[in-house]
Design a protein around this nucleic acid. Structure first.
Lengths: 213, 213
DNA sequence: ATTATCTATAGATCTATAGATAATGC
DNA sequence: ATTATCTATAGATCTATAGATAATGC
């Protein structure tokens, strides 16, 4: 709690069930069921009954693993960020030329954004339905993902493969990268009239890199 | 309907009331009441009773002016885009140096985004709750606003105050400008730790313009 | 007479829990 | 014996409408 990065690990949700392995398994079922339903119908129009049914057990049992419907939303948001973070870290190269590592990370990130479009949209649309506390954790996770790019930028400044940047400008560029990736998910209805995914990724990557070199 | 730009003018919502002036007036009351409630509590958690009460009349009368709750959301989205568009057009200068007109328009736009933060967030969060048809109109309006920047970019290319740009790149930069303005509204929780509004506007404006000159 | 407004409520939900039943492990 | 699961439902909504009343204009 004292380290701001630990915030993104989230908070415990109380359960009536003793076996931690079972809790993890059932909650994964809940999340898998809920993600699809929330994407299709939104959080508010999805009922806890639908979630229980799609997860493969009864409504009563669902409430052994979460205390409220909002708990389900929180689990979903955390799971989405978790997956996003893993997919990015999996591919980030920290050795060698930082500028080209950044360019690769941007490309990878934009492709992941494309693959996780519906999930990213869900977070934009439903974060507001979280309790204050849950929202803080979800935003902290978003921030931690942003720091992947901030770290690469700082590394590029250190090894002189990028132009020098003020501390604030590092943050700004990291956020810009994040948002331009998301942009493909919430403006594709217009962007796709002009670009394929690959064209979009290349143009944006070049735009960002030309700013930095 | 045949001209894509006309789409943004929207579609008529049926009413039981004959006097068009009264319809306009009551709907303005409805929109003013609903905007505040939707921002505070979200579309789904706001009840039609609350809207009627805040608008100053009964629930029965509300339904003389709209057919469904979703109609209210649609009216709200249109009103927000209307105001945004007016505030931008009011300040856009089409005479003289296009590059500096663009820089000024960006600055003005970012400030308007700041002032209308809650409204922009509302559109990001609730557009999905519109019917398919209403959503099309709302997105068309968003596109029309984006074209304000696309037009300035084309003008800058024509008068040689900006670098030459391919057709697709004009669209891309216009969308980037739009989204970087919105970004202040949905990432201020993080950005404000590093920048004041004015610093943010200047940095982003300089970043965009340096790409174009 | 016509138009606008209000009151009262039908009908349809939905979340969360209580209490009963089934499964598991000692 | 303990833990997990299920069935049934209490209690609390909420949208949209029907029918009654008030206001308006000829």
């Amino acid at each position: 709690m004292s380290d701001p990065r630990a915030l993104a690990d989230g908070h415990e949700i109380p359960t009536e069930v003793k076996d931690p392995g079972l809790v993890a398994q059932r909650r994964r079922q809940i999340v898998d069921a809920a993600v699809g339903l929330f994407i299709a119908n939104g959080f508010h129009k999805t009922t806890t009954r639908q979630i229980a049914k799609a997860a493969g057990f009864s409504i009563g049992n669902l409430y052994q693993y979460v205390k409220t419907k909002e708990d389900v939303l929180y689990l979903v948001c955390q799971a989405i960020h978790q997956e996003m973070e893993e997919r990015l870290n999996q591919r980030v190269r920290y050795a060698g030329n930082a500028a080209s590592a950044l360019a690769e990370a941007i490309e990878n990130y934009f492709l992941v954004c494309h693959q996780m479009s519906d999930h990213i949209l869900l977070i934009y649309q439903e974060t507001k339905s979280l309790t204050r506390q849950s929202m803080r954790f979800v935003l902290a996770h978003e921030e931690r993902i942003t720091q992947i790019f901030a770290d690469l930028l700082r590394k590029g400044v250190t090894d002189y493969t990028l132009k020098p940047l003020q501390r604030g400008q590092v943050e700004l560029m990291a956020h810009n990268i994040m948002v331009l990736g998301h942009m493909w998910t919430f403006r594709r209805w217009s962007l796709a009239r002009h670009f394929s995914l690959d064209e979009y990724v290349q143009h944006q990557r070049d735009l960002i890199m030309s700013e930095l070199i």
